[in-house]
Computed example of a mutant assay.
Amino acid sequence: MTKPIPIFIGVDPRERAATNVLIDSLYQHSSTPLAITPLLTPQLEAQGLYWRPRDPKQSTAFSFTRFLVPHLMGYQGWAIFMDCDMLARGNIADLWALRDEQFAVQCVQHDHVPGETVKFLGEVQSAYPKKNWSSLMLLNCGRCTALTPEFVNTATGLELHRFHWLAGDHEIGAVPEGWNHLVAVQDAAQAEEAPLLHWTLGGPWFQAQRTMGGALAAEWFVARDQAFRLFE
């Protein structure tokens, strides 16, 4: 029997609409059962897993909680983490099939150097090597044992997001770029066949960014309307 694919979604309370549309899009396009867990900071705090104060450079509630996924998996098996500001257009089972035991983490290895200093809702835009790599990760949890709750709550943001908890970059594998297409950052033509869109600068669920990505924003609204369609 095929086990459901474990997917953890980083949730920010300001992006609940984005989270719900992402979840529906994952289910609608998947050929395999999914086990989706939204990472809600208050729940993790209540369980004694997350206690670090908010960092001034932290733009979302899940900036650091994403690194608790291996612990939540008991450091066994594989899991997918993704930011909530995404939209699935392809079969997530195709990404799952790319798991490679020689790696501890697999992700799209962007070369993204932000030109702006702020992003959605005036949040600070930070520039650092491996920017956006951690926004979509295939995690080989048994090889991520350094990510204890104590480490996640005390390490610097750069130590976490630059994967300093691994032995080296040789433990990071690449997946095709379409699995984390950065809307309004990468060439729009690249989005045509991309199975996963990512509104890293803020998406159409924010009033001020309702047209972010042009036709891609319109596509998000179609997905939203389909997710919440009322049937008579």
Rank of each mutant, 00 (worst) to 15 (best):
L49E: 03
L139F: 11
G202W: 09
I80Q: 10
C84W: 02
F81T: 00
R229Q: 05
Y50W: 07
L182K: 00
S135Y: 03
H170C: 11
A127N: 05
I172S: 02
Y75E: 04
L166Y: 06
G90A: 13
Q106M: 15
Q28T: 15
L34H: 09
T2V: 14
L230I: 12
E159I: 00
T37Q: 15
K57E: 04
A127E: 08
V185G: 00
Q190E: 11
F228S: 10
L87A: 01
Y75G: 00
F67K: 00
L158F: 06
P13L: 05
K3Y: 13
I80K: 04
P114R: 11
L158S: 02
R229N: 04
G142F: 09
V175Q: 02
R89H: 12
W179I: 04
N132S: 14
E150T: 10
P6V: 11
G203C: 14
I5W: 05
Q109M: 14
A208R: 06
L216G: 02
G48D: 07
L95F: 00
T154V: 02
G115R: 10
V11E: 12
Q186N: 04
A127S: 14
G168Y: 12
M137W: 04
G90I: 14
L39T: 07
T117V: 15
T148C: 05
T19C: 06
H161R: 12
P149R: 13
R14D: 11
D100S: 04
Q125C: 07
K57F: 03
C84I: 07
T200F: 10
P149F: 14
D85M: 08
S135L: 08
F231G: 10
I80L: 15
R14Q: 08
G74S: 10
K131C: 03
G173D: 10
W165N: 03
D187T: 08
M82Q: 15
G115V: 13
H110Y: 06
E150K: 07
A189H: 11
Q28P: 06
F67S: 03
V152S: 00
M212G: 05
P195D: 05
H198R: 09
V11G: 06
H164R: 09
D85S: 07
L26E: 02
V11F: 08
A18T: 02
V113H: 07
W165Q: 01
F221V: 12
G10P: 01
P149Y: 13
L49S: 02
L138F: 07
G90L: 13
P56K: 12
L22G: 01
F221L: 12
V124M: 09
A217D: 02
F103H: 08
L166P: 01
V105M: 08
A93K: 12
G115D: 10
M212S: 15
T117P: 09
R224D: 08
P42C: 06
T32W: 13
W133E: 00
P53L: 09
D111T: 11
S63P: 02
Q226D: 01
P70Y: 06
F67Q: 03
L136E: 05
P204S: 01
W199N: 10
P33A: 15
P114I: 14
A35V: 10
H71C: 02
H181E: 04
A174K: 08
R14G: 04
W179F: 11
Q207S: 13
W133H: 03
R162P: 01
V113M: 05
R229I: 06
